[in-house]
Structure formats: structure tokens, C-alpha cells
Design a protein around this nucleic acid. Structure first.
Length: 561
RNA sequence: UGGGGUGUAGCCAAGUGGUAAGGCACCGGAUUUUGAUUCCGGUAUUCCCAGGUUCGAAUCCUGGCACCCCAGCCA
């Protein structure tokens, strides 16, 4: 399926760098990238940016992209996340064919390189505790001090490292450290830990290991093993680059990758920190990782976002090193644009108001032809039932209308889309004065919505037949947070920052009968309302629709209040 | 007050010494049996600020200012 036709792929500095590298003949075999998620949570919109970048660039330049699980920390990772991540990447539209890897696949090789480091005096086993290491690291403005174990001989270190691997030491009792420079202004170079002891079962390697390599050691070497040419990551790893390069320069590697950083995505009203997302799930603030309010790919999928719309979004926001804070409207525009041409149209009334046509025969019913997609006749049409009693949207009737309101009100005439012109003759109220029903007369000469005399009617509203339509549940979503840039200092303000209207469930919406055949994941445009998607919990007898995004509503901006 | 980065419209973002692309948002107007869509038009005399170089500066130089990241045996 083509991306939206008018989108010109924007250029950006990484694409330019690759093009220049290729032009310079640096990579005769082509380029290689990788997407390296840690399987300790679900993928979110921020990952989508990285996935589109890495897989997208590889496709564009006929290179390769690895899906590599960065699984070096057994206590936070699980197969559940591995499975979900694979599904999400695939769903987004990318494939890795035989290039699926785990950093843990490389543990033995990594260990051999650690040995090489030790042999050459570039790493040592340190017996300091975590607290002691922290205390001797120095501060941002003052240098650290050398570990008393820094001077151990290569032989002794080799012996100790072997014992670490053999499980002879307790968790946290020792660590393998790079021997770099405790006075470096770059904190990452102050003898960083390379291996730590963790007697813990790993989701991929089981109990084979009780020492696990750190990210800064694993990442560059995994890149080198895979022949990654362009290792793309986010800006907060900028300082790590010096260590990335140091590692590659001190062991015998098969290829030399280079790291390039770009800024991470931040989107209005959304938070993507794994800690926070995990909290939302575990405290049941949301329905799970795929709650339609979650910024996860599975949440967006359940909300009704299409992969194409997300790819389009990632293209539009660009890739730079600026601090990026993207407005939600950009994302919303992308789905609307995609769903506008993709989604079938249907009639649904979310807040039903009964409308009775007094001059329409009690027992009569008829069917009108409604286009499935007005802009695309090839998608055909369906017959919608009509009778004396209908439901219209409560918002489409105002007893005392403001200026410029051209929907239904007493004495006014509107078009019932595809059906007839009706004029409001009477309004029924309950004891509290709420409008509970309206009565109209219809113009029999306006079948299909076109009056015989050609008079103009400004308003057209949607409706369902009370006799035929089915009740359905509709879930209306808004951002999870009130603040466009949610920030949390403690867990307590989490609940204060939540938008209490983030989910509004409506149980008595009325839908046209044809909608009953829709299945999970199908998307529709409920005319004049928005785009909706059949929820995975939906069933023919109890349909559930999630609102992906409302239609653009100029009237809402114009109307008073 | 160490090191590493970033400043172009409300939000993204091109621009690489020759006179400020584009998208979103916003504001008009046209078409419309969805107040949708579509279509036209408008929106930075100025690029964080101040100096300097140059015929010419968002682009080069100098000096400021603002914001982001780094002190896990997380990634």
C-alpha cells in the first residue's frame, strides 16, 4: 500500500550521512542498521520513530536491519515482551527475515573479549561495593579516585574473572571494570563496570551464566558482530559514545560500527517512560498495555491507528538533534488522513434522541441507499432502514439555537441524510425540562434528501431507525493526562495528573444493523462523528467501538461557550 | 561551578555565503446531502542576543544568554 501520495520523504542528517558514506565507497557491501529493544516492556510511539528510522533506512538503501533484543539484564526481561515486540514491529510493517538476534546469543564471544581486555591490562576485577564505587566516582566537577584493586595483575584478574563466571562469588561482591581514567570529565569513562554478578535465570540463556555484561560493553560489540555500519540511538547516549568507541578500539573486532545520535520523540499529553507505563498497567489505571489510551503500539492499534498512519507520522516529524516536542494534532492529522480514504462510512448515534415523524405511516418502512464511501463509488453502497421513529444525535437538536446553528430546532427544517427533509413541530420534555423527544413532519416529495422544489436546506444530520438499529457500546477517549507535558516527581501526583475523562463509556449508542457484522480491528467513519474501531472484546450481540479520533469539528470552535 | 549537546513561526522542520522550502495548527474564501473531505489564498522584512568579517550572513568569526543530557553493578 502506498504511503499518502503527496508526502515527499524529507531528508535528514542521518540519511545524508549514509548517502555520503556510500558515495565515498565506505560500504561496498551496503549499510547495516539494527533496532535494539530491551524486552522489559512494550514498544511505544517513541520506538516507532526508531523502528521506522532503522528499518526504513535499511530498505531505502538496500541494506539490512537486525531486530536485536538487548537482553543483558535478566531481572527485568521476559519472553512475554519478546513476543509482543516482534508482533508490534511486524504490525508496523517491517520484517527482519533471518536477522533476529539476542545480545545474549553473544555471551560467550563477549566473555572472550572481556578476557582479551583483561590480558591486555584494560580491565580489572574490582571488589568495591556498589556504594564504594559510587563514592569514588567523583562528581560532575571533581575527579574520581582509583580503586585499590586497579593495580591487580593480568594473571590475578584472569583468575578472578574465571571465578566470577564459575559462580564462586556472591551477587554484587565483585565487578569487572574497564581501566580507563578516573579523572575523565566524561563520567562514563571513569572505569565503568563491564560485568556484574547476578545469579539469576535468563529468559534466553537459562542458568548458563551468573555474570552478565553491561550495556556499554555489549552494545558496541553486538553491533560489530552483526556488521552494523550505522548504529543509531537517542541523544542521551551521546556521552556513551566515547565508551562505545573505546570498547571497539581495545578488542579484536570483525567490523567497525559508528554511533550516531538523534533526539527522542516527545509527544504532547503522553509519557513513554517504561517505569510510568508499567505503573499505569500494574495499578490498573488502564486496562493493560494495549489500553487504547496507552502510547504503546498495541494501544494505538487497539485504538484504531493504522500502521501506515504511524509511519507517516514518523516521516513527518523528521530526525534531528533538536529537543522535539510534537503536538498531538500532527499524529491525529495522520490517522484522519489515512482513515479518510480507507474507512467505510456508517451511521451511528452516540447520544440518541428520539425523533417521531408524525405524518409518516406507523407500519411503513423503507430503505435508502447509502454510499460506503462517497468519494469512492467502487466501494458500493448499502441499504439503510427508515421508519416513523428514529434516533438522532442529541447535539443535533437545540431548542433555543445560537446564531449560525443550522441543525434541528423548533420550526426548522433539516435533511436526514440519504432520507427525507423533516421539520420540527413539537418538543417533549421531562419533569426537569430536558428534551426527551422531538416530533417532526416529513416532506414526502424529498425522498433521498432532495426536495421536489429544489429548495436549499443547510443542515444535514445522521440518524438511525429506532425499529432497526442495534444498541452498542462506544468508548470515547481523550488524553490520559491533563498536562500537555506531564511531569511526575512522585507516585502521588500521578493520580492528580490523570484526566478523569480519558475514557467515557456510552452503553446505549445506536448503530445501523450492518455494523453488527464488523469484526475486531475493523475501522469505520461514523458519519459526522469520527473514526471508530471495533474493539477486540466486541461480539455480534454486544458490539464495542473505540473512538480513534473525532472528525475535525469547525462548529465546535465556532459555537458559543 | 566539569563534560557533552541544542537554539529558524504556536509545534515540527528544510536551509551548508547570494537575499527564509514544506507539514501541523491558525485565519479567510469556494465546493459540499458528513459544519467532514477537497480546493484556493493568508500567516518570519527575519533565523536566541550583541558585536565583527563580507558587495552580500540564518549560514563565517568573537562574546554572551537560554534550554537539554551525564555522577546505575539500568538500557
Amino acid at each position: 500500500m502506498p504511503e499518502s501520495n503527496n508526502t515527499v520523504t524529507p531528508t535528514h542528517f542521518i540519511r545524508q550521512k549514509i548517502a555520503a558514506d556510500l558515495a565515498a565507497g565506505k560500504y561496498p557491501e551496503g549499510i547495516t542498521t539494527r533496532f535494539p529493544p530491551e524486552p522489559n516492556g512494550y514498544l511505544h510511539i517513541g520506538h516507532a520513530k526508531s523502528i521506522c528510522l532503522n528499518f526504513g533506512l535499511a530498505n531505502e538503501f538496500s541494506g539490512r536491519c537486525f531486530l536485536r533484543f538487548d537482553d543483558t539484564n535478566p531481572d527485568r526481561e521476559s519472553p512475554e515482551f519478546v513476543k509482543a515486540i516482534k508482533e508490534d514491529v511486524k504490525w508496523l510493517g517491517f520484517g527482519w527475515s533471518d536477522r533476529l538476534r539476542h545480545a545474549s546469543d553473544y555471551f560467550e564471544q563477549l566473555y572472550q573479549w572481556a578476557v582479551e581486555l583483561v590480558e591486555n591490562g584494560h580491565a580489572y576485577v574490582c571488589d568495591l561495593s556498589a556504594e564504594e564505587i559510587r563514592a569514588t566516582r567523583g562528581t560532575l566537577t571533581s575527579p574520581g579516585s582509583n580503586s585499590p584493586y586497579r593495580g591487580r595483575s593480568a594473571e590475578e584478574n584472569l583468575e578472578l574473572l574465571a571465578q566470577m563466571r564459575a559462580g564462586e562469588f556472591a551477587d554484587g561482591s565483585r565487578v569487572l571494570r574497564a581501566r580507563i581514567d578516573m579523572a575523565s570529565p566524561n563520567l562514563h569513562l571513569r572505569d565503568p563496570a563491564l560485568y556484574r554478578i547476578r545469579h539469576q535465570t535468563h529468559h534466553n540463556t537459562g542458568d548458563t551464566w551468573c555474570i552478565y555484561p553491561m550495556y556499554d560493553f555489549t552494545h558496541p560489540l553486538s553491533d560489530a558482530i552483526e556488521g552494523v555500519t550505522h548504529s543509531l540511538c537517542t541523544l542521551e547516549f551521546e556521552d556513551n559514545r566515547a565508551l562505545y568507541d573505546w570498547v571497539l578500539e581495545h578488542v579484536s573486532i570483525p567490523s567497525r560500527p559508528y554511533q550516531t545520535e538523534f533526539s527522542r520523540l516527545s509527544l504532547e499529553y503522553t509519557v513513554v517512560s517504561k517505569r510510568l507505563l508499567t505503573t499505569l498497567v500494574s495499578e490498573r489505571v488502564v486496562d493493560g498495555w494495549d489500553d487504547p489510551r496507552m502510547p504503546t503500539l498495541s494501544g494505538l492499534r487497539r485504538r484504531g491507528y493504522s500502521p501506515a498512519s504511524l509511519r507517516d507520522f514518523c516521516n513527518r516529524i523528521g530526525v534531528t538533534r533538536n529537543q522535539q516536542h510534537v503536538e498531538l494534532s500532527v499524529l491525529e492529522n495522520c490517522v484522519r488522513e489515512d482513515l479518510e480514504r480507507t474507512a467505510a462510512r456508517a451511521f451511528a448515534v452516540i447520544r440518541p434522541l428520539k425523533l417521531v415523524i408524525d405524518n409518516y405511516p406507523q407500519d411503513q418502512e423503507e430503505f435508502f441507499e447509502a454510499a460506503n464511501h462517497p468519494a469512492d463509488p467502487s466501494r458500493g453502497s448499502r441499504a439503510v432502514a427508515f421508519c416513523r421513529e428514529l434516533y438522532i444525535e442529541h447535539d443535533d437538536f437545540i431548542e433555543d439555537p445560537p446564531r449560525k446553528f443550522f441543525r434541528l430546532s423548533p420550526g426548522r427544517e433539516v435533511r436526514l441524510r440519504y432520507a427525507y427533509l423533516v421539520t420540527c413541530t413539537k418538543v417533549i420534555h421531562d419533569e426537569q425540562g430536558n428534551v426527551t423527544q422531538v416530533h417532526c413532519t416529513y416532506d414526502p416529495q424529498s425522498r433521498g434528501g432532495n426536495p421536489a422544489d429544489g429548495r436549499k436546506v443547510k443542515g444535514t444530520i445522521h440518524w438511525t431507525s429506532a425499529r432497526h438499529s442495534k444498541k452498542a457500546q462506544v468508548r470515547l477517549y481523550e488524553p490520559l493526562f491533563n498536562d500537555s507535558q506531564p511531569r511526575f516527581s512522585s507516585q502521588d501526583d500521578l493520580h492528580d495528573s490523570l484526566n478523569e475523562h480519558s475514557l467515557v463509556t456510552i452503553d446505549d449508542a445506536q448503530i445501523e444493523p450492518s455494523l453488527t457484522e464488523a469484526t475486531a480491528g475493523n475501522t469505520f467513519q461514523f458519519e459526522r462523528l469520527g473514526y471508530f474501531c471495533v474493539d477486540r472484546d466486541s461480539a455480534p450481540e454486544q458490539m464495542i467501538f473505540n473512538r480513534t479520533v473525532p472528525l475535525r469539528d469547525t462548529w465546535a470552535r465556532v459555537k458559543p461557550r
